[in-house]
Amino acid sequence: MSGIKASAADRRDARFGYVLAAPSLTVLFLIILFPVLSALYTSLHEYTLIAPNFDIFTGFDNFRLALADAEFRHSAWLTIRFVIGVVLLEFVIGFGIALMLNKVERFKPIYYAILLCPLLMNPVIVGLIWRMFLHPNLGIVNYLLSTVGLGPVNWLGDTKIAIWTVIMVDIWHQVSFMIVLLLAGLASLPKEPYEAARVDGANAFQCFIHITLPMMRTVIIVTLLIRLIFAVKTYDLIYIMTRGGPGVATDLVSYFIYRTAFVGLNIGEASAMSIILLTAILGLTAYLYRYMRSIR
């Protein structure tokens, strides 16, 4: 292409393309880029809600404060553990179910429909339903446990159990996402290597280890990364089910930022935390993007 100049017609086409894209680009800038830039601006200032125009530039003070905040560090560390737990458990359960469903021949659409139900629900609804199910005295879960002689469990009120309850509900809600992606991956695998492996003498387990896993590598990594990015942002479930409690036992970072900004009214520091979270998610996304390009 070098050395060849675009013709007048090409340049006209390119200009027309920009004109066509301009309205939607403008809207995107206004509703996405502007708030991000505004948060970045706020994070570098001492910001007061009652006098928004008198903010003082404080450099990286807000970031320093945020990183020094034991509660922020606690919720960041809790989020990391939550994300790893949720993603790993969902992956193991999801892969298991996907492998089973891949062998199913009859009623496949029905299984799909059942599996997709939780995914179609709003997280707020999921939280509300499970809060009712898990109510210590009136919930159906404890009632069922009592019928087999197991004592009532304080699902959301016990500091040791609450985080696992949230993880369990998140798995219930999101595992079908894993199943659907992994199942699509499994369905697209070629059949012939399996036949070759059977002739070569591989049993089902060896086929899984030597054929399925390596051939699914890309799908697995992409699925894990997507799910990871979404899990870091978990907010609605916490807001509906525990509000970060009991104490700070389920205080995931998104919810903690919300509290800092709109309960503690510490807008500058909350903005700084948002920027830190955004950087982490952007890093993951960039890695996902680069990985997906590298496998082409």
Binding site: P190, E192, A196, A197, G201, A202
Partner: peptide
Amino acid sequence: ADRDIAIVFQNYALYPHMTVAGNLGFGLKL
């Protein structure tokens, strides 16, 4: 696996993630 026969498939059915040596040696390894 126990019939002691080998099959060559129409589309070769090579293991895409293994090297040529890996493909050749897989059956022997198992």
